[in-house]
Amino acid sequence: MLTIEFPGCHALIGVIDAAVAQGALPAITDQLRHALCRLIRSDTLQLPPCVFEPAAGRYARRELYRSDTLGYSVVAMTWAPGQGTLIHDHAGMWCVEGVCSGELEVTQYDPLDSRADRYRFQPVGAIQAGPGSAGSLIPPHEYHTIRNPSEDTIAVSLHIYAGAMTHCAVFEPLPEDSWYVRRERALGLDPVH
């Protein structure tokens, strides 16, 4: 179901449908990563103006498309200067993330230890991702943070999830030590207009 028409939306849906039809996870995410980079770099994909409007105090999430047949969803995220996430997972779903404008800092983490709802993590790599770059997450390698490091520029990223991303686990740092506490977080959607 297409939420809003925008230039390149049908090309985007076509490449996602073709990739998801592959069936095997590494093939899906590899094909999607390369296709998303091509679409963004060629200016074929021109997201609707509303995705460049940040939300106060948090990043914005706007669902642009959900496939009734294949189940995946496409969400544009808007990051005001300095906005970012806690360490979080994707509730066991694969994801391909591409930067459409601005720059994002993405840091991946490996879990080191867990005790009940407490976790310890180790950062295993960080990248500065600019327009036309894309990455993928395949569980169990899904723990990461995303942050707009700019002091004055909005960033927009496009996220293709295996399904509707309605919740995830976030990991809040405990002030007294190097542990994080796991909390379930419901994920809402901002309006698309």
Rank of each mutant, 00 (worst) to 15 (best):
V75K: 00
H141F: 06
A155Y: 01
S73R: 00
L45E: 04
S150I: 07
D43Y: 15
M93H: 10
T44M: 14
F52S: 12
L174W: 13
D110I: 12
Q128L: 14
I138Y: 10
E105H: 06
R62L: 02
D17R: 00
V15I: 13
L12E: 00
L187M: 07
D89F: 02
L104G: 01
L158Q: 03
C37I: 13
I87H: 04
R41H: 11
P7E: 10
F52C: 09
Y59V: 15
A116N: 12
E103F: 03
I160H: 04
A21M: 14
A27M: 12
V74W: 04
C100G: 09
I138W: 12
E103T: 07
S67N: 05
S150T: 07
Y143N: 09
V15L: 07
H144S: 10
P49N: 08
L112E: 14
H141W: 06
A35E: 10
H159S: 04
G98V: 09
A162T: 00
S42W: 11
A27C: 11
T85V: 02
W179A: 05
E151D: 15
A76Q: 03
Y180F: 09
P131Y: 03
R61K: 04
R66F: 01
R115S: 15
R33Q: 12
T85N: 02
P48I: 06
I16T: 05
A76P: 01
A169V: 08
P7W: 09
H88M: 01
A76L: 04
L174E: 13
N148F: 06
Y143R: 10
Q108H: 14
F6D: 06
L25V: 15
A126L: 07
L137A: 09
I40V: 10
P149D: 03
F6K: 07
A56V: 09
A18W: 15
R62Q: 02
P140V: 06
W79L: 00
P48G: 05
S67P: 05
T107W: 03
E97K: 10
Q83L: 07
I154R: 04
F52R: 13
E105L: 08
Q122C: 13
I127T: 13
G57W: 01
Y59W: 15
H90N: 03
T29C: 07
S133H: 14
P139K: 11
C9Y: 09
Q122M: 11
A80I: 00
T69K: 07
H144K: 10
G188P: 02
G135C: 11
G57M: 02
A55N: 13
V124C: 15
P123V: 09
V74N: 05
